[in-house]
Design a protein around this nucleic acid. Structure first.
Lengths: 243, 243
DNA sequence: TGCGCGATCATTGTATACATATCGGCGGCC
DNA sequence: GGCCGCCGATATGTATACAATGATCGCGCA
């Protein structure tokens, strides 16, 4: 970029046009696909054909490829050379890594969050928790799952560290995938009242209890998974037929 | 240009196994650019024109764009719509975020690292630290900077959590950029003997001391920066001429 | 002589065409 | 009758062509 140089003195504030309209479109498509994955409307393993996506969203394959690559770097889709894209199917190891990482980062952020949280934050968090409960009650699992991930991401952002907040957001997205593969139907992710309890601790300024609670909360989610190595691909024939 | 004038005989069975070379080639180019940025051979703000890169590496702009996008997601380059790519110039806020994140994650990983570290790991780390010292002594700053980042990344990987290790690796890359902008010449990043000291603590199985040392180590790097908001873009004329 | 304005150019954004690799089916051969 | 190998279909990887946009620079006018 240009560090010095004229800043285009004409008007300064007057951005002529929404110069990024194409980019915004891409952003929108990215969100569409991302949401569909997080909400389990696209299950792990589902193939994402470029042609089909291009037709659905009305752009050419070039743009789709760009979006798929971004999704791949976010580890929501897997790009197999010459085979195309599919929704990532997290392994058991990855699941463990993700939850360990969440344990470290989300708990580590709580003290700073407790220090900086404002009334507006509390209000918004309560609203998100309420909508999540409501979605759960009315059986909209997809919405509830996304709202749960949103809650954790929004919470992390309060700490004021954009880098860590982005990281947590991605971890939450991946957690959604993990729930889709290893979660038990009926018992999805966060307990319905956990988030509300967490808000109470934060509102009381009790960072330590909030931190401990977040730790238990994440452990509870992880414990609710049935992590069994599916071994669907490349079964070990030697081991199976060794005797 | 480099049109492959291969025969159109698509049934030709005798294709030499160049199946994955394209992807590997891209990986290689990514590494090349990434290293150049981390080693400060490409300074923050440097423009990266697609045509030029395409010509240098002998592929078309399509491949270059893919790589630039990946670098953008890693926050090593900044993609400005309609303006192209340039090496990211981290802001002071970003610098603080990155070092806070490193403090949390790298220190948080130390206990597990101390638990799992093997003799092979120690050997390799010692070798990296030695090469880093050597590079410093012989004035090869670029190499030293990269080796320092590699050391931290390699250390993090010992903990066995790929997700967190990848995160640390990216944080270290960004730290290199931060050093390029805010670092004082002559005093670059890690002290020459710090890494060796850390190895000693780890070898002794003294996780607590290692953890404390890592904390001081990172704080020292951060403290050595002259983080002054450059304010290069959009200087606040009102403030400057207010009196 | 300085400034506004318009044309040209350079560079990116997007789409499309072509080459290539993989997958599934089918026929021949053993 | 079953297995191996060929072949077409499908989808991806890559390059190139075209379009759009912002920057640069020269020119005319006050």
């Amino acid at each position: 970029m240009n560090q010095r140089q004229t800043v285009d003195e004409r008007g300064g504030a007057g951005r002529p046009g929404k110069n990024g309209d194409g980019a915004e479109r891409h952003e929108e498509i990215h969100r569409s696909i991302s949401d569909a994955i997080i909400e389990h409307r696209l299950r792990p393993g589902a193939r994402l054909r470029e042609d089909a996506l291009a037709e659905v969203f009305g752009i050419s394959r070039t743009g789709i490829r760009k979006i798929l690559q971004r999704l791949a770097l976010e580890q929501l889709v897997t790009l197999t050379p010459r085979r195309g894209a599919s929704v990532t199917r997290p392994t058991a190891d990855e699941a463990k890594d993700v939850f360990d990482a969440r344990q470290m980062v989300e708990c580590g952020l709580i003290p700073e969050i407790a220090r900086r949280i404002t009334d507006d934050d509390l209000h918004e968090l309560r609203d998100m928790a309420r909508r999540e409960r409501q979605a759960l009650k009315s059986g909209e699992q997809s919405t509830a799952i996304r709202l749960s991930a949103d809650f954790h991401a929004r919470l992390a952002r309060i700490a004021g560290n954009a880098t860590l907040a982005d990281f947590v957001e991605r971890l939450c997205s991946r957690s959604s995938l993990i729930l889709a593969v290893y979660g038990n139907p009926g018992h999805l992710g966060c307990e319905s009242h956990d988030h509300d309890d967490l808000i109470v601790y934060l509102e009381a300024g009790n960072g330590e209890r909030a931190q401990a609670f977040m730790g238990r909360h994440l452990k509870a989610i992880e414990a609710s998974l049935s992590i069994v190595e599916e071994e669907a691909e490349a079964p070990d024939l030697h081991r199976i037929f060794s005797d």
